[in-house]
């Protein structure tokens, strides 16, 4: 093995590559030190980036300056094998003792495997909750019902005067604040401005609607108080509260379901039934 003397360009490249690797090592040490001193995310990221960038520069210069790029060719034999090859392989499968010749047994085997495969699907049923009704029915039913009191997000029952004008108050069924399809909102509107009566009725202008957009189920938390409209921040559906929470723009197609309410004997607001329609996004159902 004779070593030829490196050219000047090679020596320069080698020096540059070694320098880049040293920078990389410095970055790695810097990361370790930063970690040890709890120096913060930014410096940790910068040190690691320097470490890897040093590696990258070194390797890139190495590949560009010290080894040839291109200039080689490899044959490509194509993929259709010669007919003789194909015939030989086919003959192996058609040999007298080959299992592929016994169609009857293959059919029985296929039947057994199919049965096993179908049986293996059964445990998937465990992914469904056992004790519930059909999904569509459970989507329609919410914790609201006759006599369920309205509470705010702290769980405090609400009186009619707990809903001031010009704001929306998120309300929940008592005891079920975290249930996904139950959130509703109460607003106080001027009944004389109603173009259409709210589906769930109103108590002197106090109306409760489902908070979930009928398009994709996001809470319609943006309240434009002057116009008495609510807007969904996800896809910008907006609903006119004076017209029975009818959708007036955006991709939602159905009005927000209303919640019928009354004032209970204890002076607190309570529902007299479930929402007037299934809350949230639509699904395959007959209403």
């Amino acid at each position: 093995m004779s070593r030829r003397t490196p050219s000047k360009a090679e020596r320069v490249a080698s020096r540059r590559i070694a320098g880049a690797f040293l920078v990389s090592a410095a970055g790695a040490v810097g990361f370790a030190v930063t970690y040890g001193l709890n120096g913060g995310t930014q410096w940790e990221g910068v040190c690691l980036a320097v470490a890897f960038a040093g590696l990258a520069v070194g390797l890139a210069v190495w590949s560009r300056r010290l080894v040839p790029t291109g200039g080689y060719v490899e044959e490509h034999e194509g993929f259709t094998p010669p007919p003789a090859e194909q015939a030989m392989t086919a003959a192996v499968f058609r040999a007298p003792e080959s299992p592929t010749r016994r169609w009857g047994l293959l059919g029985a085997l296929g039947f057994a495997l199919t049965a096993l495969g179908v049986a293996a699907l059964f445990p998937l049923r465990s992914l469904l909750p056992w004790d519930r009704q059909r999904p569509a029915r459970s989507l329609k039913n919410t914790p609201w019902g006759p006599g369920v009191r309205l509470v705010d997000d702290q769980g405090r029952p609400l009186r009619p005067d707990g809903v001031p004008a010009d704001t929306m108050v998120a309300v929940f069924p008592e005891g079920s604040i975290d249930v996904g399809d139950a959130p509703a909102f109460a607003v106080r509107l001027n009944p004389e401005r109603f173009i259409r009566q709210p589906a769930g009725g109103h108590l002197g202008g106090l109306v409760v609607w489902s908070l979930l957009c009928t398009h994709a189920g996001c809470p319609v938390r943006l309240y434009l108080k002057g116009a008495a409209r609510v807007l969904c921040p996800c896809h910008q559906s907006s609903f006119d509260l004076l017209a029975g929470a009818r959708p007036i723009a955006g991709p939602a197609a159905r009005p927000l379901p209303g919640l019928p309410i009354e004032v209970g004997p204890d002076g607190f607001l309570r529902a007299t039934g479930d929402f007037t329609a299934p809350p949230g996004a639509g699904f395959w159902s007959r209403r």
């Binding site: 690691l48 590696l55 990258a56 080894v67 490899e74 044959e75 034999e77």
Partner: peptide
Amino acid sequence: HNVVGSRLWPGYTLRTLALFAWVLA
């Protein structure tokens, strides 16, 4: 019927490792 370019070793190995390091950086 052929492929023209660089061989895996050494040229392409260095180049692709450099790319890996760039991605990480």
